[in-house]
Design a binder for these strands. Structure first.
Lengths: 225, 225
DNA sequence: TGGTCACCGAGTGGAATTCAATCATCCTGG
DNA sequence: CCAGGATGATTGAATTCCACTCGGTGACCA
């Protein structure tokens, strides 16, 4: 789940992707250099044509260096995905603080906007996000989505007084799944993103959550014990 | 898109997956045996760890035999998916004819029910379905989803007088994406399927489509030119 | 009995991964 | 300040793995 884990400071699994934590400064540059190279290569040749040799060469490193940091080919792509998600997280924060939020809806809208922005500007993300659903990430994905739903729930509860609880988390989880699917569809064959799906995504999110959390629904809820 | 192509009699690419059409009877059994083996292996080791050797061994055949029928490893998984979809198609038909349909909603509900049943009973489908978005099928997937949306639109237009047109197809496409995401989520870590997500899927589908195609909405639409 | 059809499995090639050797940097005692 | 050992970082040839090919062998048919 790609929207998952957006607000987490690392979801646990993320950090263990790196085999050996770099100790000297130069290797930090190496690490991000490898990811930059991977992003470029993925954009050029696609997900399933990428080879470790290409990544190494593009990064000006040797094969062995790749394996020093990542246990296998797929882990490199995972890490690329993780980094993109981290940048997205920052983007959400920026977006949230740059906007004047008058209701929970504005916050949700910011998240969608940030995600769309990520698709558009982060090299390789579009492809990695589609293809990263295999194998290993599958297990993490649900945990990530759940984690993200919890974080988002915190924000909505604290900022907009939505009623906290498992119901809210579950519904945000549902919303995240739907949004991810629709945005993936929007960008599937269109680097700019098909606006119809993006618009419909916002609409669906709002309608779905309005059902439970519109002012009217909340008022109604308040009148009941 | 996994719900995609459900009602199609083959989407064009489907039939060309088999390299050589079997001529003698025994080879028909071989073919389905290979798929059974692939399904079992996929269930055991997962999508990206499956090897042609594993499939061959499980089927009691040799590597060469696999390649006699399928051009490559991915084609085997395509074929497995296709077979599952074919069975699903039958299940939809059964479901539709076994139910008394009083509105378009009943038809949509049947599709969801059939899809859930497929997840539960078709070996290997759960995993293949997740990963079928990736790699090669990715391109087909959107076409499939679109194709399925069109077929479903036909049914709803003919049986329940929904207004035909691109809008209906687009909205069904959106609905398909959402349903697929939510059902995938329901079965992601639960072989039986998390009922909360299944229920929510039905609810979301209905709410979303009701917005445009509820009796009230249709009446309203009718009063306008 | 000749001609397809089906099957086999060692062989090929390319990509993933390993690992022993080498280089770079840091650290410490003098 | 500076040997020079210790440890981190890098290398790339060697190895392993795996998808895929192909020539040979038997099975069915007419």
């Amino acid at each position: 789940m790609s929207l998952g884990g957006l607000l987490g400071e690392g979801t646990g699994a993320a950090l263990q992707q790196v085999r050996t934590e770099p100790i000297q400064q130069r290797s930090a540059a190496r690490l991000s250099g490898l990811l930059d190279a991977a992003a470029a290569v993925v954009d050029e040749v696609g997900f399933d044509r990428i080879t470790t040799a290409m990544v190494a060469e593009r990064a000006g490193a040797s094969i062995g260096t790749v394996y020093r940091y990542y246990p296998d080919r797929v882990a490199v792509l995972h890490a690329l995905h993780e980094r993109a998600v981290a940048r997205f997280r920052q983007r959400v924060v920026d977006e949230l603080s740059a906007s004047t939020l008058t209701s929970w809806w504005d916050a949700v809208d910011c998240v969608v906007t940030a995600f769309v922005g990520l698709y558009r500007t982060e090299p390789g993300f579009r492809i990695v996000n589609f293809d990263d659903r295999d194998g290993a990430p599958a297990a993490d994905a649900v945990a990530d989505a759940d984690f993200f739903a919890r974080r988002l729930a915190d924000v909505l509860v604290n900022e907009f007084d939505l009623p906290s609880g498992d119901d809210l988390i579950f519904r945000l989880g549902v919303a995240v799944e739907m949004a991810d699917a629709l945005l993936a569809r929007a960008f599937h064959s269109d680097p700019i993103g098909d606006e119809r799906f993006i618009t419909e995504c916002r609409l669906v999110m709002r309608d779905y959550l309005d059902r439970f959390y519109s002012p009217q629904a909340l008022d109604l809820l308040a009148t009941l014990p």
